[in-house]
Structure formats: structure tokens, C-alpha cells
Simulated assay, not measured.
Amino acid sequence: MKSKGSLLIKLLIIQYLSSLFVAQNFDFFYFVQQWPGSYCDTSQGCCYPPTGKPASDFGIHGLWPNNNDGSYPSNCDPNNPFNQSEVSDLMSSLETNWPSLACPSSDGISFWTHEWDKHGTCSESVLDEHDYFQAALNLKNKTNLLQALASAGINPNGESYNLSDIINAINQSDGFTPSIECNDDESGNNQLYQVYMCVDTSGSNLIECSVSPTGANCANQITFPAF
């Protein structure tokens, strides 16, 4: 009896520790969208998905749990890998709004698998797999970055714009200050690449960021390339 009791206690301890591991705490999400023109015109290049060239619009990169001290959890539950059947009703929207531009050409499954396994599993305490991807799609519709920039006369035409004007345009539209990440095209021009918005732990509401992402690498003047 003693050995059975000891085994039960050990199993309960393991179960408790496992629950802590899966339901890691985090303070907010980064909702990250990328401009396909800036992804594709680097020396690395890009590959369109089998469905063809994506729309000339910002695409979702990910919804990433983060902490106020700048750290972030990752790969929180290897026992709950991406399951395509869980998001079967979202496939069309994911293909449109969350396309993969990586090479070789991909239908997006590997991209979404990576995002769920690395980031999504760390939000399981509030969002299951379907809710996680639905939350990102909802945020994409809510922010509408391309329209926000166009309303301020900022268009993807290869022209140069003030970084502060880009930030202000998004702030005026959505009510919160974004962080902008830049990269360089093949000619070395600094350009608008990714937009980070902060979201509360429900995955639903934009909030003001408590910490900025590292590695923004933006000049005061950046280009907004065509796609």
C-alpha cells in the first residue's frame, strides 16, 4: 500500500508540474503583420504559395505571447501539436490572410504549424488552437493597416516616408502606438517590413505596449515598396 501511495503522489506531482508547464503565464500578445513586398525584395527572395501571388496587403506573421520584462515563453506544450482539422473551417481565411512566402513554395501548413507549436501552445490557458487562429484573423480585420496608411497618404509605391508619420497614421486609425520593424532591400534601402501591435491576454483587444520589440532597425525615413 505504501508503494502504491508513493506512486500516486509522484503521478500527481508530475501532473501538477505538467499543468504549470503548459499554462505558462504571459502579460500580453504581440500581433505581428508583415508587408509582402518587403519580404520578397530582399536578397533572400520569396516563393508564392500554390494558390498564387497573395493580395497586395499586410499578411499575418503571428500572435506571440510576451512578458513585460521583454522575455517570452515558447514551445510550451509538445504534446499538443498543430492539428489541421481543428481549423478546417478557417483554411480559406488563413490562406488569404496568413500566407507563407518562404521558399520552397508552401501551402501554409508548415508556417501555421510553426506558429502554433512555438507560440500558440503558450496561450492554451485562454485560447485553444481554433480560437488562437480565429483571434489573429479577427485582429487583422480590426487593424486594417493598409487602409490606415492610405488614409494618411502613405502607399506602397516605393516612395520614402517619415517613420513617425507611419506610426502616427496607425495610431490615429487604431488608437494605439505600433512598433515598426524594418529590413533592407537588395539595394540597401531601409523599408517598412513588420508592424507590431500589442493585444491583451484574451487575444481580443488592442492595448498600449509596455515594451517595444528588439531589432526594429528603422531609419527616420523608410520606403514602402510595391508588391
Rank of each mutant, 00 (worst) to 15 (best):
P78L: 10
K140S: 09
D27W: 02
P73T: 01
C103Q: 06
D41N: 11
Q15D: 08
L90K: 01
D41Q: 08
L137G: 03
L145T: 10
A150C: 09
A226F: 08
V199P: 00
F227D: 13
L145R: 04
N155W: 12
M197Y: 08
P104S: 01
Q33P: 03
S125C: 05
P36Y: 04
A226G: 09
I166T: 00
Y48L: 10
D27M: 09
A216V: 15
D131S: 12
M1C: 09
L163T: 12
T143H: 01
Q221N: 07
V126L: 15
S85F: 11
S71T: 13
A148M: 03
C198V: 14
P73K: 00
G203E: 09
D107T: 06
S160C: 05
N162V: 13
P36A: 01
T143G: 01
L12Y: 04
C103A: 07
Q147H: 13
D117H: 11
P54G: 01
A136Y: 00
P81K: 01
G45H: 05
P99H: 00
L94N: 08
F58Q: 01
Y30L: 14
D27E: 06
S18Y: 15
Y39P: 02
L163N: 06
N171S: 15
E208Y: 09
N83T: 14
I9Y: 02
S92Y: 07
K2P: 12
M91G: 14
T96W: 06
L12E: 06
S105C: 05
Y48P: 14
D200C: 10
F224Y: 14
V22Y: 02
A226L: 14
F227G: 15
S56K: 12
Q44W: 14
P36F: 10
C209P: 14
A152D: 07
G175K: 01
S106L: 06
K53G: 03
S18Q: 07
S6C: 11
L8Q: 04
D89E: 06
N75L: 08
S3D: 11
V199F: 00
G203Q: 07
G52K: 02
D107H: 09
N190I: 05
N66R: 03
F176P: 13
Q221W: 02
I60Y: 04
T214G: 08
N75A: 07
N97S: 15
A216R: 11
E124W: 03
A226P: 14
G120F: 05
T42R: 03
T51L: 05
F28P: 00
L146D: 08
D174W: 09
F31T: 00
E159M: 09
T42G: 06
